[in-house]
Nucleic acid binder design. Structure first.
Lengths: 196, 196
DNA sequence: CCTACCGATCGGTAGG
DNA sequence: CCTACCGATCGGTAGG
């Protein structure tokens, strides 16, 4: 069977992925059924397979896309001549932006990657590990240049990445805190601490 | 059917819960099967039901137990006459300790609570929300007393809780960083920042 | 603690 | 995009 990817098909596939991201976020990958996904699109389950190859392919698309976006941003940040602090701030703010603009997909990539099949699982984890290592290098250079305290780069990166990841909890409570306050206060906290 | 809880039964039930926590962590609640759980115990799946009522009961036990442990610790911390900073430090260190001593169960409570059934799901979320609110109050008092900067209490608590939660990533890489370095550096980062 | 088994639901295919 | 359907697997029960 020849596979002709029409513009219309490509668009529909994107819609399926988008709906899948929402469903996977709410139910988790394993508990989300293809029948339920089809329901949200107003079609029968078997019809899904006109647009996608499998359930697992949906998860792959989401996880790979997100991993690539973060890597691409780090490439940009890394190539600027900014100070270490400015680079770290830029990364933090990018994570916050991603969480706001691609919440479902970021959430799914963060929580459901374990259901990826090999070799994509290894690819994904390697890419994440590489991302962390590059951030650690930025921190280490900052320490060397005395821009930063004499801190452990691993713990620093772990703390920062974990904190920004926690924005997923904020998403449901938007009302109380504006994005500006959130972004600025978190950046400030992670750079300058909270003690007066 | 009379339910007689013998000491031996109680012990075996605890073993089942312990193995379930490990399995739920590795596979996720939905993808973990009772047959696989039985396998790790060297018995057949139906035999599990001599010790437990259902799969969902296992998740409940884990989530409720963890929620109660964190709440109990906060009760203790809250009743001390320590400074705000000392209280926050105590909470951070307790989270780190819990992550180290009850890793599987903390992980499952953090990741799989969404599969709880009502009304336990609401109970769990209420308890967590309450925990966060009490931490926010500690921060607010610290701000009032000028112990802390004029920071948003919600963002501060979110940042701290998210950071300590991220210790789950450290768990697999223990070798590189000792617990002492991790604990002290993270406390320092979250209180004092990283800028020199 | 086991064997035997049930109804439900799953991802996915055949064929149109 | 549908109907009809398959083999696999699920949580759990009956009965001992």
């Amino acid at each position: 069977m020849a596979k002709i990817q029409s513009g219309k098909n490509a668009t529909k596939k994107e819609v399926v992925i988008e709906k899948a991201a929402l469903l996977f976020k709410v139910k988790g990958y394993s508990a989300a059924s293809m029948r339920e996904l089809a329901d949200t699109l107003g079609i029968e389950a078997p019809s899904l397979y006109n647009y996608i190859g499998s359930k697992s392919e949906l998860l792959q698309s989401i996880c790979i896309k997100m991993a690539n976006e973060f890597t691409a941003n780090l490439n940009i940040v890394d190539n600027t001549a900014e100070s270490t602090v400015a680079k770290i701030e830029a990364v933090i703010r990018f994570h916050i932006q991603m969480m706001i603009n691609n919440f479902n997909e970021v959430f799914v990539a963060n929580h459901e990657w374990k259901h990826l099949k090999e070799p994509l699982l290894s690819d994904f984890l390697n890419q994440r590990r590489n991302y962390e290592k590059r951030l650690m290098l930025i921190v280490e250079i900052g320490v060397e240049k005395k821009e930063l305290k004499n801190i452990n780069s691993y713990v620093t990166v772990l703390t920062i990445l974990s904190a920004v990841r926690g924005l997923e909890f904020w998403y449901g409570h938007k009302k109380n805190v504006t994005q500006q306050v959130l972004e600025n206060d978190m950046v400030n906290h992670l750079l300058n601490g909270i003690i007066n």
